[in-house]
């Protein structure tokens, strides 16, 4: 068994171990790695902000192409900094209001389309299901099962009525569907997470300690 002589590989491996050490319990090594991680990732974000946004959308267009109009969003952005002046700190609400206006406006019809209409489309029973009514994926029986599952799940989320009588039965069937669905997600994720661990162990045992060839 040999070990890597590259100091950078050592650094990478040791820091990975520091992070893993949290699994045992919180300790100074993890604390160090965690703080380093925070610092570097924020530094990295600053670089992304500077190179990809400030430089591309502000500095270059204004300084090189003289698109002075971009000073308008710059000036509005400056309002964020009024937070530090108590009497004028409410001016910070203007860029926040712009943000909320834009994104809520964009989201409103988009959500109706993606989460409501598209889902209705997928749930609708149709004549093509008659062709092979007992097909386990596209048959009529499954179509009806899905529709029942969807409608019962919806009834679970009724807020303005007590879950009593028919609503209670339907909400109960709904929660069973929900739990089967969550179980499926759960089981599906197990393997994905294990493969992430295998990936990291591979690095440790191939590049750092040359245990696996």
């Amino acid at each position: 068994m040999t070990m890597s002589t590259d100091p950078w590989v050592w650094l990478a491996a040791l820091l990975s171990l520091f992070i893993f050490s949290y699994l045992y319990k919180d300790n100074p090594l993890f604390k160090f790695a965690e703080h380093l991680f925070t610092g570097l990732s924020v530094g990295y974000l600053i670089v992304i902000y500077y190179n990809n946004i400030v430089r591309s959308y502000l500095l270059n267009p204004v300084l090189a192409d003289h698109r002075w109009v971009l000073l308008v969003p710059f000036a509005i952005g400056l309002l964020y900094l009024f937070r530090f002046i108590p009497k004028l700190s409410h001016l910070m609400l203007i860029p926040i209001a712009i943000t909320l206006g834009i994104w809520n406006g964009i989201a409103l019809p988009l959500t109706i389309e993606a989460d409501i209409i598209r889902q209705m489309q997928g749930t609708m029973i149709n004549t093509s299901m008659f062709r092979n009514p007992w097909d386990p994926y596209t048959g009529l029986a499954v179509g009806i099962l899905i529709a029942v599952g969807v409608i019962c799940t919806i009834t679970y989320f009724f807020f303005s009525r007590e879950h009593k009588g028919a609503l209670k039965v339907s909400a109960h069937i709904g929660i069973w569907f929900v739990m089967i669905g969550f179980g499926a997600s759960f089981g599906y994720t197990v393997m994905a997470r294990v493969s992430l661990l295998i990936g990291r162990l591979q690095f440790m045992f191939t590049e750092w300690i040359h245990l696996i060839k």
Binding site: A107, I116, Q119, T123, V148, I154, V178, G181, F182, Y188
Partner: peptide, 23 residues
């Protein structure tokens, strides 16, 4: 089959609620 049928049904049902809640 579990992924494609009951799982799908519950996720669609939840999505309707999320869609209306978000909207």
């Amino acid at each position: 089959w579990v992924m494609m049928v009951p799982n799908m049904a519950s996720k669609r049902g939840i999505l309707f609620g999320i869609g209306l809640g978000a909207t």
